[in-house]
Design a protein around this nucleic acid. Structure first.
Lengths: 203, 203
DNA sequence: CGATGCATAGGTAAAATTACCTAAGTAGTT
DNA sequence: AACTACTTAGGTAATTTTACCTATGCATCG
């Protein structure tokens, strides 16, 4: 199995020795890796659209690992996080895991343990990246609909047993033919050929 | 907000004092609660179909909390678990959270903290209970399909743009009319009125 | 051997969708 | 005042789905 060059490992730790040792270890294995001493530095370089994971020290001055995690999730960034900690406690580890962390390792840890985490973090990042792309395309398509068209789509999705023009027309007090016209535009805008395909779009 | 009498709190801890103090605290708040000294005792009384949560001591002889959690998930039981521990470490807490625990509290903990956990655990149990019921009904319906019928359903689900009898017939090398007949039986067995509804069944 | 279940194929008629059009009223913008 | 977008409504014809049926070949089970 070869390493995908487009994957990136961010390392954020205020300890320069750990940073450089981790960077070396990652690069030896063929990964692209970048190191940062503070959360602020990291945020300057952070690219939310890369397939990446984050190795994050919990015990940092200024902004702790947990605070950075909170900041990232609050902004809708979903890059998987692996915490490493020198002298953290159970409450911190639990909060990190609740916040969606991939793992929470105590220093010192075995390198193989970290590599396992990185591997699952990156494959998680990959699938989330694909999901995000799909959702963005979908959202873009739905944004093209007019209010009335959106209303009709929502009715079809929430009432799958009443998708005929007659029934929708009755529900909205308009002619079935009008619904026909709306539907034609809806299918065109959403780039599907049938109502069945439309339903499939929403998984 | 009143407490739903059909909800149940299981307490598993080898320390009799903690057990009785927790039981008392739960019952004062109107919850139904049962205490057990060992995992084995708990498993004898455990009813997977109740809306319940489990307060589980990690450090027990015989079978630890983590082992019990693993056993429950291996058997497909989804009752939410709140861990409590006397002298556990970060690795245990992380493993518990990875295994889907609601929380992992160190003794001693504030009672309000535990009550918050119980509240979210029980609402989680409630929604999972509803999901399970839905899925069981759905599975039961799909089990009534013959192999050929299932094949056609799967084709429709995975190829939403080719649901016409013509296309399915071409794909399976059979007459479109045959597909018509199969489809009629499929819709009848799945208790839906249209292919659109069928797609909606799979969310 | 008969019964049952499954897969196959077809007939017919009603209903719905789809693909083409036209067209008018209303609201907001330039 | 002209333009644009949105909503409304309809015509016609081809295609599809749906709801009723019948019927044959095959395998399995009692």
């Amino acid at each position: 199995m070869t390493v995908d060059a487009s994957q990136l490992i961010y390392i954020v730790d205020d300890d320069a020795d750990i940073r450089s040792s981790l960077l070396r270890a990652m690069r030896i294995r063929g990964y692209e890796a970048e190191g940062f001493a503070t959360a602020a530095e990291f945020l300057e370089s952070y690219d939310r659209d890369r397939i990446a994971c984050l190795i994050l020290d919990q015990g940092m001055p200024d902004m702790t690992g947990l605070e950075l995690q909170k900041h990232l999730t609050a902004n809708g960034y979903s890059t998987p996080i692996i915490f490493i900690t020198g002298h953290g406690g159970i409450p911190e580890s639990v909060q990190a895991m609740k916040g969606g962390a991939v793992d929470f390792l105590e220093k010192p840890f075995r390198q193989s343990e970290l590599m396992d985490c990185i591997h699952s973090a990156l494959s998680l990042a990959q699938s989330m990246h694909a999901d995000n792309r799909k959702n963005r395309v979908l959202q873009e398509r739905f944004s093209r609909l007019t209010p009335r068209e959106r209303e009709i789509v929502e009715h079809m999705i929430s009432h799958p047993s009443e998708v005929s023009s007659k029934e929708i027309g009755r529900h909205l007090n308009i002619s079935p033919r009008t619904v026909d016209n709306h539907r034609a535009r809806i299918l065109e805008k959403l780039d599907v050929c049938s109502v069945v395909e439309l339903m499939a779009l929403t998984r």
